[in-house]
């Protein structure tokens, strides 16, 4: 097995253009599970460890741009956490400190599991995924990036360079249900963004469908039935109906982790609670 450690994005791009079958290694927290537990045998590895550009994040008035190889530990606390609080909250729920020191958004996007904790945040914040490869650059909205269970829009030779997340005037939060108080795969998760200037909420659900699900019906119904710009929370009835509509938008399954019924119930509760939190 060969291991390549490019130092620049150009170098990385060239390697992947020449040998699109090379496997990208970022934090390795998904890939090594694949290797150790599921018998995956990559023949050549390209490590992102030394590609400095992918480890950087920047922001301006419009957006926050996070390199694909920035670890969760960096998103959890500090300035970045203040800029994208929902992402910080999602990052804090990922695995253990060891996993958060290694795991990255690029890996979360590469794997594209419906239970990936970074993904509902990217969905609700309508992030853009910046893709490089084959001498080209593509910007793909998250909604078009994730196309199925563990399937994404990356083509051979392409990689995730970074994601940019629009800055929102309002409130954002993430919540995740598992059967343990830490280090657990989501049974159901919800990200809610209340955009004050637009007078809208955006809700994204994790682990309750083949992809991250948005809840357009619940979002527009709430916008029509409450004041999302001000500081007056919607009435209990409105919150309950919103919760019901969110549940209705989910498409969960029964498996050994939980039941469809519980998952449907949980996302509704989480969405309602996040909405309430947005007024606190």
């Amino acid at each position: 097995m060969t291991v390549l450690a490019p130092r620049t994005v150009d170098e990385l791009e060239r390697i992947l253009a020449d040998s699109p079958d090379h496997t990208i290694l970022s934090g390795g927290t998904d890939l090594m599970v694949e290797v150790n537990l599921h018998g995956r045998r990559p023949t050549a590895i390209v490590s992102l460890r030394s590609v400095e550009e992918l480890h950087a994040w920047t922001f301006d008035h419009e957006r926050v741009t996070i390199g694909a190889a920035v670890p969760y530990a960096t998103m959890e606390v500090g300035e970045l956490a203040g800029l994208v609080p929902a992402l910080a909250q999602a990052a804090r729920t990922v695995g253990s400190p060891q996993i958060r020191a290694a795991g990255t958004l690029g890996g979360n996007l590469g794997t594209c599991s419906p239970a990936g904790d970074g993904l509902p945040v990217l969905s609700a914040l309508e992030a853009t995924v910046h893709i490089r490869g084959n001498g080209d650059r593509r910007d793909v909205p998250f909604a078009d990036f994730m196309v199925g269970v563990k399937r994404n829009a990356l083509r051979a030779g392409e990689f995730v360079h970074s994601v940019s997340i629009p800055r929102v005037d309002g409130w954002q939060g993430y919540a995740k249900v598992g059967t343990r108080n830490a280090m657990v795969i989501a049974n159901a998760s919800t990200c809610l963004v209340r955009d004050r200037s637009a007078g809208r909420v955006r809700v994204a659900l994790g682990a309750v469908g083949p992809t991250i699900l948005r809840c357009p019906e619940a979002e527009s119904w709430l916008a029509a039935n409450s004041d999302l710009r001000g500081n007056t929370p919607p009435s209990a009835d409105v919150r309950a109906e919103f919760s019901r509509l969110v549940s209705q938008a989910s498409r969960p399954i029964d498996d050994h982790r939980s039941t469809a019924e519980y998952r449907r119930h949980a996302v509704g509760v989480l969405a309602r609670r996040l909405l309430e939190r947005s007024y606190q």
């Binding site: 909250q89 804090r92 995740k176 343990r180 989480l270 609670r273």
Partner: peptide
């Protein structure tokens, strides 16, 4: 719910 921040 712990780190999942599910409850107030």
């Amino acid at each position: 719910g712990g780190s999942g921040r599910t409850a107030d």
